[in-house]
Design a protein around this nucleic acid. Structure first.
Lengths: 212, 212
DNA sequence: TAGATTGTTAATCGATTAACAATC
DNA sequence: TAGATTGTTAATCGATTAACAATC
């Protein structure tokens, strides 16, 4: 069997993730088929783009009927998910860390929330939302023992750098940095950064200048 | 006096916001000048891109000395900030809403956190972090009376749609949607959406496939 | 059959980078 | 002066969209 295994464009990967979210909702509502233009409309995209993304992942629909919702969810899973799952940790269990933890619970079975880390004695040494919380000093052992591949950083900005360093030397392979400090990582670690203030400033700018 | 007022590319606007964050830190550390390659390195960009962004906003540096940190912060402010400020509200004061509120406090004087909205009686009718919290039913009056221009939506997904509708009919001009539900807004409302799960799935995918 | 939809290539558009002139 | 940096245009690259063939 031949497996389509080229690297997909980052933008396509993002959109596939978004499509899946929507498809899961469609499935819940009992929808069996979906047209490219329906999916496009739900995501403010064009139908061509949706079809092209689907083509790039090697899936196909049925002429005049659209795409089978259930099968497409599985097809996206084949691309986005690791067969045996990937373990995830959150470092910094403040409001942001907790928000992610809560949202996450039970949603993505292939991304297994495995450990939490904090410095607060009230949080460490117990389970939060059913996930064990350790002191950040335990990052090296726990990340290695539990084979944690992905770290989400939601610590206060002044600790962002050292947190990243700890995760990296513990052998993490991907980081989602939600602090306001841009990080530097070695080449073999994938880094994604997001700052809400930038999003908000973008909204402020365009909502102002676009209204004539 | 001639004002440079063309619309900047969205990507440039994002980067200017990021540069400013970094420049503010540089200023705190007493740095007076910064080279394009220094700023580039801090943001994983190229020096050319930094210089081009700066050029596009109509600012200039000094040959061989770089850019004056203080002046550049002001120049970015002239682009991103509204002279008299813009009022912001958060709808949904759960962990995510609270995280934003806390981070936000005192950071961006031109984005004035003006009102919070929730349904929980323990939160409404009092101040949280110094900002008054109202019941979501009061959105129409408060948004109009307080001239709120930007709404951040951090409600549970099932309420995302109606929250957006309420904000829009109350006359909001920009929305930052942090729920997992894509929204539809009329043409004259600027919408920015962000979903952490997509970011996380992107990290999972690339951290897996990029390691050979 | 006509119409609607998928699948795919080619063209276009926009964003980044290369190249280099200017200048301190 | 030589070297380093800014500023800017032109070339390249990548992402989106247009066009259209295939087919149900």
């Amino acid at each position: 069997m031949f497996m389509k295994m080229e690297l997909l464009p980052a933008k396509t990967v993002e959109r596939l993730s978004e499509y899946r979210r929507t498809l899961i909702n469609c499935l819940k509502e009992g929808k069996e088929f979906i047209y490219s233009h329906e999916l496009a409309r739900l995501h403010h995209k064009t139908a061509v783009q949706v079809r092209r993304d689907i083509m790039l992942m090697g899936f196909s629909g049925i002429q005049r009927k659209g795409y089978r919702v259930k099968e497409m969810i599985d097809a996206i899973g084949k691309i986005l998910d690791c067969k045996n799952g990937q373990n995830v940790a959150i470092v910094g269990i403040g409001h942001l860390g907790t928000a992610i933890l809560q949202y996450f619970t039970g949603k993505r079975p292939k991304l297994k929330m495995t450990a939490l880390f904090d410095v607060d004695k009230n949080k460490t040494g117990r389970e939060i939302n059913g996930i064990p919380c350790y002191h950040v000093d335990e990052i090296p052992e726990i990340v290695e023992d539990k084979n944690i591949e992905i770290g989400i950083i939601t610590v206060p900005p002044e600790y962002a750098k050292e947190t990243a360093e700890r995760l990296i030397s513990a052998g993490i392979s991907g980081i989602l940095n939600l602090t306001t400090i841009p990080l530097n990582v070695p080449e073999d670690v994938y880094l994604e950064e997001y700052d809400m203030i930038t999003s908000l400033e973008k909204v402020a700018y365009f909502s102002r200048v676009l209204k004539k």
